[in-house]
Amino acid sequence: MSYFSDIINGTKTLLTGMRVTGGYFFVNFFTKRDVITQQYPNNIETLEMFDRFKGEVIMLHNENNEHRCDACTLCEKACPNGSIEILGDKAKDPETGKNKRFLVKHIYHLQMCTMCGLCIEACPVNAIDWGQDFHHVEYDRSLLTKVLNKPGSKIMSGIKG
């Protein structure tokens, strides 16, 4: 007896479940709303991310190609996995005549970065920030090592060295 009641119950519950999936199928077929699957976004160029999105670390530059980094290496020390290397040098400041440290290269290894954000939190002059780019696909690992300060850029006036 339970053999037949099992078959009837099984069919009944199966149909209840199929009413859910069938409902979505027909509603989406005619109205195109509540779509569950979607294509991979091909509008990568115009896709807007949330403003706090952590894509990569970038260095902020103003319109005169000046940045705020004074090569204090606090971000290098804060980084848990050595993603940041700072090459700095010392030169005489023409205004004060004292030796002042300046940035040569801010090297950022994106392949090692875990997006923890400790470098950005450690920066005392807000020289680095989050970038929105998420499409980090390269054929070679070494291409992910980036120099964050743009070529020919120099430090903004008014930042202490």
């Binding site: 099992d6 119950n9 099984g10 519950t13 199966l14 209840t16 479940g17 009413r19 859910v20 999936t21």
Partner: peptide, 12 residues
């Protein structure tokens, strides 16, 4: 509730 209809109450 849809989860229940679809899976939880399903005899199979």
């Amino acid at each position: 509730p849809e989860y229940d209809k679809l899976l939880t109450n399903n005899i199979i």
